[in-house]
Simulated scan of single mutants.
Amino acid sequence: MWELYLNKPHDMVLRKVERQPPLKDDEVKIQLIYGGICGSDLRVFKGNLKHASYPIRAGHEVLGRVVEKGKDVKYEIGTRVVLLPNTFCGECDLCSAGKTNICRHKKSLGINTDGGFIEELIVPSKYVLPIPDDVPDNKAILIEPFAVIVHAFKKVNIMKDRSVAIVGCGNEGMLAAVLAHYLGAHVTAMDINPAKLEMVRNLGDIRTAHPNEINGETFDIVIEAAGTRQSIERGLQMVNPGGEMVLIGMTQEASFPVTHFVRNELTLYGSIIYHYPSDFLQSIEYLRDHRFNVNDIISRIVPFTKFREAYEWALSGDYGKILLDFRGGCDG
């Protein structure tokens, strides 16, 4: 059995795993189908995430099938599942308040505990969710990253004819643009990369623009998904008086125009990951609808043994989601 292991930033290898421990009563073994490369995976790879630990097995976006289960597990062998890659204790004050996404003892796979890019993964069954048969693999792998957007959108009222700006068209930004469009909003998606704007145009009747082309225009809701100081500061100037902005991208700091913020009575939300399983279940319901177009968000699917090329494509910023296919095995 093989795994993708990050010894230190920029030093990823394909490593053989000789054996795994026996399953506990509440655990499942998942045989991977796909692993998705996420922006946080790239930050860990580059050494740009302060709370990352090394060495560590990479990855957290996982789709697979249950091939073995402990005696207390209700799922049947063969069940197709996605993974919740963020643990929660269920006991701290935040978990007790239903805020498991910001659990005080949270661990994140592929960041500060071993991740999911291994041919067969063992996890507690409470962290896997079965997928309906009518959600194909190429949509199912998007459930977890899409749940990030589902969670963020619950903070604001995106509806028909409201104006929504999406700042940054990485994977999360593209998903946000598709959902806002699906909900009937007038969507403007912005990015500095023309290739990303072309991808967004393929997803629906969505206006696209370089940020420099937006001169003085404001929007009811701004979704910041680029995670740069400049995009946050510029995004705040794009919010209508009385409007709202949601930050899902992350940067260390940005300047905050307090007078502008107060005088215009703006509302600013931070949003991190999701609530489980509710945001996952809502994500699945959207993806089940054939009108919800995410077909072009996935750019390439490659065998996991070609991880170096896959990470290079993802790091280039010129592609959508890059998937690693774990079904073919490895000759070593």
Rank of each mutant, 00 (worst) to 15 (best):
I111D: 06
T267Q: 13
L142K: 00
V262M: 07
F256S: 09
Y276L: 02
P211M: 08
Q31E: 15
G328E: 11
D114V: 03
P22W: 07
L121E: 07
G78E: 12
G184Y: 00
M159A: 15
V294M: 09
R43A: 12
G227F: 06
H181A: 09
A209Q: 05
Y75L: 15
L84T: 11
I322K: 03
R19L: 15
L324V: 11
K74R: 03
S96R: 12
R327N: 06
M12H: 00
R65G: 01
Q252H: 12
S108D: 10
L268I: 14
A176C: 09
A58L: 15
I221A: 01
Y319W: 03
F256V: 10
A185S: 12
G78A: 10
G36E: 11
Q230W: 11
P55N: 05
V128W: 05
N7D: 15
Y311E: 02
S163R: 08
V150W: 00
F88Y: 15
L83W: 01
A180N: 04
L324N: 12
K29T: 15
R65E: 10
T218M: 11
V28L: 09
E253Y: 07
P211F: 11
L175W: 04
I272P: 00
K99R: 11
V67A: 11
L236W: 00
S53G: 04
V302Y: 10
F256K: 02
L323F: 03
S283Y: 00
P85V: 09
K16L: 05
A314G: 14
A97C: 06
I158C: 04
K106E: 13
E213H: 08
D41A: 04
I143F: 02
L287F: 03
R308T: 13
E3K: 05
F256D: 09
P194R: 04
Q230P: 00
F117C: 04
F153L: 15
K24L: 12
R288M: 15
E172L: 15
K126W: 05
D318Y: 01
F153W: 14
C38P: 06
I232M: 12
K155Y: 04
D93L: 11
D205A: 06
L183S: 01
R65N: 09
S40C: 00
T113E: 14
K16Q: 06
F292V: 10
P257C: 04
K160Q: 08
N212Q: 14
P194T: 09
T267I: 14
G78M: 13
N193Q: 13
D134W: 00
M250H: 01
F146S: 03
N86F: 15
P303Y: 10
G317V: 09
N193L: 12
Q282R: 04
E61M: 01
T188W: 04
L179I: 07
I158Q: 03
K29G: 13
H275W: 10
L315A: 13
D331M: 04
P241T: 01
L63M: 08
A195R: 05
